[in-house]
């Protein structure tokens, strides 16, 4: 019987340290603020389009920027990409975004309809 073998299906007991507790509280607050902000941004985006007064030339880039901001908040606050030790996840995710952007752009523009 080796005592150093920890049992991976035993319930974890105890509370986080005071410091961790405070950290979690801070995190929670940040997340609620981001949530409110995201709701706000979403509403703005919908309003921009629904109001029908704002010309598309402005509205489309505007709502796209709003979408990007929201996604960044999801990734960094909700999914904790801002925490330390996330170097590789950041690298791979942003590489994914890079390839994704190229893909979307070509499929939109370079399909032989308009020649560039």
């Amino acid at each position: 019987m080796d005592p150093h073998v920890t049992d991976p299906s035993a319930p974890l007991k105890g509370k986080p340290s005071k410091k961790a507790e405070r950290q979690l509280a801070r995190e929670g607050k940040q997340q609620i603020i981001s949530f409110v902000f995201m709701i706000f941004l979403t509403s703005i985006a919908f309003l921009t389009v629904a109001s029908d007064t704002i010309p598309n030339r402005f509205a489309i880039p505007f709502i796209l920027i709003i979408a990007a901001v929201q996604v960044i908040m999801q990734l960094y606050y909700f999914m904790h990409l801002n925490e330390r030790g996330n170097g590789w996840t950041n690298i791979m995710l942003w590489t994914g975004f890079f390839v994704a952007a190229l893909t979307v752009a070509t499929l939109m523009l370079l399909i032989g309809v308009t020649k560039y």
Partner: peptide, 24 residues
């Protein structure tokens, strides 16, 4: 944790392909 994040990186390209197709 790491493997799942990488998987999401791949999913990004998957959805981008679908978005691009839709936009085209």
């Amino acid at each position: 944790f790491l493997g799942f994040w990488f998987f999401l990186g791949g999913e990004t390209v998957l959805f981008a392909s679908l978005f691009g197709t839709y936009l085209g």
